[in-house]
Design a protein around this nucleic acid. Sequence first.
DNA 1: GTCGTTGCAAAGATTTTGCAGCGGC
DNA 2: GCCGCTGCAAAATCTTTGCAACGAC
Lengths: 131, 131
Amino acid sequence: MYATDFRMTHQRRLILEELKKVKTHPTADEIYVIVRKTMPRISLGTVYRNLEILSAMGLIIKIEGFGNQRRFDGNTNKHYHIRCIKCGKIDDLPEDAITNIEVDHNKIKGYSIYNHEIQLSGICEQCHNAK
Amino acid sequence: MYATDFRMTHQRRLILEELKKVKTHPTADEIYVIVRKTMPRISLGTVYRNLEILSAMGLIIKIEGFGNQRRFDGNTNKHYHIRCIKCGKIDDLPEDAITNIEVDHNKIKGYSIYNHEIQLSGICEQCHNAK
DNA sequence: GTCGTTGCAAAGATTTTGCAGCGGC
DNA sequence: GCCGCTGCAAAATCTTTGCAACGAC
């Protein structure tokens, strides 16, 4: 699938840096637009490949499950997301918004659990006001 | 987007019935394969349109966020899912597997919350044994 | 009879991939 | 210098849509 040793190319570093800079949760195409300002000849395929590799390396987070388009998050601290069902915007939840969750591994027979994701959905302030 | 009155066509009813029958969480394409056994001339576009409408009607659940492909669930009771990261299979979690979750709406500024989803990931028994 | 729905096929959207040359280490 | 990586372009995958005929109510 991937190589076992990775090289930090200019393209890879730029994608990583730009993703760490923004507070949004951009799609591959949005990242493509951003990095082309610095590196106009970069290809969309390279962006896709590097996002995949960076998330496999644990340097960024791949967000699937909000609409059809994959999104990426430069913040690798464990946190949850909320999505506006009108405009599709994704925001981070404050750390203390969800508490007390308990996952009983014994109740889930046959699986070894690796991770859990929580995704809220609602309507954001702008969309509420625009209504 | 959709019409305001819906007609229960043969195609729509069949898709709904087959989805209620299975315990899996099929993709549109898998449902297409199933319903063609009964209705060979049904088109994939019809399957997509009806799955969209049925989920808008609340008769089925649309599952996004596990891999790239949309899946559907005939079980409309509130429940969570777990996905095997090796084979992609999705199972329902037992009701009591996740407890005590508290969402503090006041901590989430600007949003009115409509829903929350929880998705676990892990390795299923078959994949664990196959290793 | 009205108008929502269908099958078909083409288009759209997103993501992946083959390849030859390039460039990190 | 090796071998992972890139740009390019084509292909693959998944989903949506225009249209004329059809069928539910």
